[in-house]
Every structure is written in C-alpha cells, then in structure tokens.
Computed example of a mutant assay.
Amino acid sequence: MHTGISHSLDFDRDGKTLSHLSIPFSIDRSPYFQIKVPICLMRNGEGTSLLLMAGNHGDEYEGELCLAKLVRRLDPARVRGRVTILPMANVPAVMAAKRCSPLDGGNLNRAFPGDPSGTPTSRLANFLETDLFPRHDIVFDIHSGGTSMEHLPTALVERNADPERHRRGVELMRALCMPYGFVADNGQASPTSMGAARRAGAIGVSGEFGGGGTATVDTMAITARAIDNLLIALGLVDGPVVGAESMHSMPTRLLSLSRHSQGLYAARRGWFEPAVRVGDSVNAGQLAGWYHDLERLDLAEEALHFAENGIVLSRRLHTMCEAGDCLMQVAEPVET
C-alpha cells in the first residue's frame, strides 16, 4: 500500500481508456496521498504498440501540450494497434513548472532503472522500465530545453549495441523529419528513458523540440508534425492527427554527442556572454563567448573557446552561472 504503483489498466482492451497511475506518497496534509499520473490507452486490434510520453521534465511544454491534443483528437477507430499516452509523466514537476519533482527533488530522466520501494520519482522510473516500456515496441519521449536552455530542434536516439535495433532507431528518428538528429552515447547503464527503453526491449526515440520554458508557434508545429509523422510511419494512423499536415520530405542531418569535451562548462561563478548562435558551425579554438565577473570590475572578461569542431547544439539561457553549469554544447556532424 505504501510502495510501488497501482493502476486498473487493461492493455488488451479495445477502445479509449482514460485513467491514472497512482503513486502513494505520504505528505503533511494527507497521510495516504497518491500522486495521480494521467494516462490514456487507445487500442484497435493487433498491430504496433507505441508509447508517447512528455513531462519527463516539468518545464518542457511542447510535448505536454501536443500529447494533450492527441488524447482529445485521436479517435481509437482510426488506430491500427495500440497507442499509450503519458502527457505529464513527472506530474509534480509539471505542476510546479520545474525540471525536477518538488516532492523528492527527482529528475526522472536520470532516475532509471529506479526502485519500487524508493521515492516517487524512483518508483515511477522503475514502473516505466519494468512494466510499461516492455509492453511497447516503440517509446517516444518528447523533450525541449526547458527554462534554462535554448536547443537546436533535434531528434535523438541513444546508441544501441545491436546493429539492427540501432538501424531501426535511426530510421524512426529520420521519420520524424526533424532538421537535425543526434546519436547520444550514454552506455548500457544509461539512467535516461532511452536507456530504459533499450533495456526493456523497446526502440527508444526522443528529441529536443524547443527551449526557454515556453511554447511557440514554430516549436508547437514541429512537435505536432513529428508526432504525426511517427504515427503514420508506424502504420498506426493513416493521416495527421495533431498538426495541420505531416511532413515527409525534410532530410535529417545526423549529429553525434559523445564526449565531455563537446561541452563548454563554467568553472566558477560568473556571467556568460555568447559570441555564436545555436545552429552555427564552429571550429576548435574558435571564440565561444566571454565570461564576466561583475563582482570584480577591475578584471577583464575572459575569452572562452570551443575545444571541438561541430554545430552549436544548445546554449544556456540564464546569463548568471555557477561552477559546473553547461554553457554550450557542440555536436559533431556524422557522415552516413
């Protein structure tokens, strides 16, 4: 009663089911409180099984809003197979508009494989990896830069040691028709949803669809198209559901992010002024920006330089920084 997650879902039932995953967590005002994570199942006979999730981080809105639209707009009669939708996976973080859960400080995308007897975030991660992900062929986890990052619109997969499964993951990533896609090397023990999907036997696809802690016309449109394109590519529906139209012709340029040296990090407290934009091509040794110390006005700003060639994938939006903050990332173009 005080551990794990409970639900009453029947994954083999045809039609549309709106329900909740319930995570018990005793709090001051309610000793038998349950965190209610909304979930929607749509099934129409046999076929591919797809899990769509957003709100892994609570301040990344494009996926949350698009999946809420999908819940309302998708008629299960149109579906061939099963679509499971988690619009707000980390509900406490979503409700607090924070990256991590205010209940336990948990970052869901660093919590896998989790613990069924742990904190709420850890219990949710464990349920996803050991129960929900294994029921699906494909897991699509939708992210954006959140309140602290501006991110190049990209699709994402983690490298899979199985060549055929890696090929399929890249194929589905390309099917989203994002302008860029990158392959992350996080290892077999990766604490992310994509690592969990791989360990669960599913093909994991993800992406960064915006940033700045807001939804824009452009980021909503590209997210909606990606969802529609994946649904169509998997044969689950026969046409767009969330967006006005699907996009089939845009080529995806592949990038790789696999080394710590591709990131630029603050080494002390200061204020960062960028010299390049997200999406710019840069070279090793090129000026990335300047680091100011506003508490020491007698000191000149420090010039910071890139360690690697590539394309600027993301930059920190908050100008004030502390030691350890990632200021920029540079992804390496991949020839295929």
Rank of each mutant, 00 (worst) to 15 (best):
P102V: 07
I27G: 10
A161Q: 07
S314V: 06
A303I: 01
M53S: 02
E245K: 11
D10C: 13
G207Y: 01
S144K: 02
E60S: 09
F272N: 05
A331W: 13
A331T: 12
R165G: 08
C177R: 06
A224N: 08
V183C: 11
R73S: 08
F127N: 01
A275W: 07
I203L: 14
L254C: 03
E164A: 15
L299Y: 07
R165I: 13
T119M: 01
V83D: 13
A323R: 13
V278M: 10
M220E: 05
L254P: 00
S22I: 00
L124S: 02
E60Y: 02
F11A: 03
A97K: 15
I85L: 01
S256H: 06
P134K: 15
S256L: 11
S281H: 14
F182Y: 13
P92G: 05
A224F: 02
S256I: 08
N229Y: 06
R72M: 04
N109C: 09
F11Q: 12
H305W: 03
P153Y: 09
A224K: 00
P134Q: 15
G114T: 02
G195V: 12
G169Q: 01
V37N: 02
H318L: 11
P240D: 12
P116Y: 07
Y180I: 07
L236I: 02
P38H: 08
G118C: 14
P191M: 12
M173N: 05
F209W: 01
K69I: 07
W290T: 12
D10M: 06
A300K: 10
S30T: 06
F11V: 11
S246I: 13
V170Q: 00
I227G: 14
D298V: 14
V79T: 00
G243P: 13
A244L: 01
M194N: 03
V330W: 00
G324W: 09
A307W: 07
V242Y: 06
N309C: 01
A266Q: 04
G289C: 13
T121E: 09
R99G: 11
A125P: 01
H57C: 03
C66L: 10
S117G: 15
I203C: 03
P179C: 04
S122R: 13
N186R: 09
I39W: 02
P92N: 05
P31K: 11
E208W: 05
H143D: 02
L74M: 08
G243I: 09
S144T: 11
G285N: 00
S30P: 11
D12W: 00
E302S: 12
G4L: 14
G118Y: 10
P120T: 12
N229K: 08
A266C: 09
A244M: 10
H143G: 05
E64Y: 06
R165E: 09
M88F: 04
V242W: 08
V330K: 02
A175M: 12
N56V: 00
A197S: 11
T219W: 13
L21P: 03
N309S: 04
P113V: 02
D14C: 03
P134T: 03
G210K: 05
E301C: 15
T130D: 04
S148N: 15
Y32G: 15
F11K: 10
C100T: 07
S117R: 08
G63V: 12
A215T: 14
Y32H: 15
E295N: 10
A197N: 12
K69M: 08
R269C: 11
V94S: 03
W290L: 07
C326Y: 03
R268A: 14
